[in-house]
Design a protein around this nucleic acid. Structure first.
Lengths: 186, 186, 186, 186
DNA sequence: TATGAATGAGTTTTCATTCAT
DNA sequence: AATGAATGAAAACTCATTCAT
């Protein structure tokens, strides 16, 4: 009903407010009062939707990650006839582009999105299976690729170190190709 | 003389106590009282040595990083006649071993040691110069390698994901080789 | 409604408690905990109403000054047909009587009520205008009178120096008359 | 000896440092550490010379007041043949000039120098005796004059309210004349 | 459901004072 | 006499959480 809609709106307002504050001033320096104030909601209302700050953070993380991955997949222009390498590179490339548009989101996800969360999302399992035919040790290989991608692109996005993300991107994709090559069953 | 020694000991006691608490229960959940208590020092003494918790953290980070790198270099068995690749792989391998022995230290450094801190340490600059003769874009290449190493080995050390560190290590070194190969001047 | 009333009551309780403590033991030796305890309110509640001790003090000062002036005016028995001198003397006389009843209040106001606060209150401006017709330099004249009154009666009220206030009062009013005389337009 | 000189110098350094800090940031916001630091003396040394902050303050007050009064008397150009009124006016005028040169000193003395301290200084007693011949109630009269002078000139010096001190001075001296007139035995 | 005043435990921080050197 | 590191009691201030409305 209208009621459910309202509820969802309040929850969403809280999550968005918290996300902004967490990214701008850090999790530790953000209080529940601040979040409630920014969301234009009473302090007590917070507890109607979330157990505490930690609960809120993990729900934001999952939500944001899902959004990003879903969008990246949609926009990556993947077709049936592509091979695994091309699909993966396209997906990564598009994800980087999306994160590059939003430094704060990138920083937030890198800090809070562990490999284990990704594993749960199903996407990774899917990818491991797809890679299984043509590559050795697909899970380890994908882990290496994902860690490299996350870590290096974060550094370039957030601090432009050692170079900015658009300059880094071809290098990163090249390195990924090299790793894939190494793991390809001859 | 004696006084300075005592002072250094107190400071060290505070840093060690804080390090343990930060790694065991997290930075945000550690209070200055706790640190002082664990260091067997009065609360007020903390403020004789550190401005606040943040100051303490950054000084611990720098200190620990320097320790690790120094030890790794000492123990890596590097000799004059080695080529760059061998030296780098040995250094990384030894660093991983050291970190593998101490999960908590690994976690702490990954969280708090940014690429920029490493850059300041001088070691990186040195490596870039050494690589300059035989590799294209040495800084970017090294950045990719370091991010991959830090991120992947952390995941393996801290959570044994996707596999434990001893299993991951050969894969990681292999991936690094593949990246080096890609950047080698013909 | 009821809520607002409660809020006002709490604020008032804090101000009254603080006033008593400030006057009895001094501002510097009064802690916020003490104030809260005396007001029978939790420590945190203090910060719901006041920024800090300084904020509280200035609000008490303004509040007390307004109270006193209002009461003095009410009780001074001023009528339309009186001339300025009579009105002023009656007002001052009544103010002194009120302060004489409450040494601590007198001490508090003398310490914390600057001339500038009085200026803001509007009463002074009014008096300046009224005096303008019959007296030269009315603002300076009134300033001299007020400073003399405040300072001398404080000394007599608080310490009975050189004599107690009831003995001093006629002298003070006499001195004020002399000053008025001096400034009267021929 | 040299030793006594050294001692006196340290004590003096502490008093001067404290005076500056008390006037600049207030008594309550000045700590003993700060005073010692500014005096370039170890914290513990403070306790060799003063019992606590209050002791220090009262000694500074007495010292500064004596200095001022002595200087004012020296510079007032008083001669044997002057009558009481002229002497008093000259003394007050010179004192105001001295205080006008040093706002902070003026503020400090007004806050900390009570009428009772003045009484102890002997100067007041002397003045009362001198006035005794020609004026009624000489002590009360002098008290009124001193309170008026202190209070009004402080306001003008510290805040230029209602006008600056050089503008106020003739008014103040005029008012004093009027008071003297009133108390003169016919 | 929603509110926001109230709480008080817990945290940071300051600082007068001591005392071994 | 002089030092200044160390102390710890006490102050200021924060904030998650509750609960009456």
């Amino acid at each position: 009903m209208d009621n459910k809609l309202k509820k969802a709106l309040k929850q969403n307002a809280l999550m968005e407010a918290a996300f902004e504050l967490f990214t701008k001033q850090g999790f530790g320096k953000t209080s529940i009062s601040e979040i409630a104030e920014k969301a234009e909601v009473a302090k007590g209302t917070f507890y109607l939707y979330f157990k505490d700050k930690y609960d809120l953070r993990s729900r934001i993380t999952a939500h944001k990650a899902e959004q990003i991955l879903h969008r990246a997949r949609q926009e990556a222009g993947i077709t049936e006839d592509m091979d695994f390498e091309e699909m993966l590179l396209r997906l990564i490339s598009r994800t980087i582009d999306i994160l590059a548009e939003d430094k704060l989101l990138a920083a937030f996800l890198v800090k809070n999105l562990g490999y284990s969360t990704l594993q749960k999302s199903g996407l990774l399992k899917e990818a491991v299976e797809m890679a299984g035919g043509a590559y050795k040790d697909p899970e380890i290989m994908l882990c290496l690729i994902l860690e490299l991608t996350g870590s290096a692109s974060y550094s370039a996005i957030a601090a432009a170190e050692p170079v900015n993300i658009s300059e880094l991107k071809p290098h990163l994709l090249g390195a990924i190709s090299a790793i894939l090559e190494k793991y390809r069953k001859e």
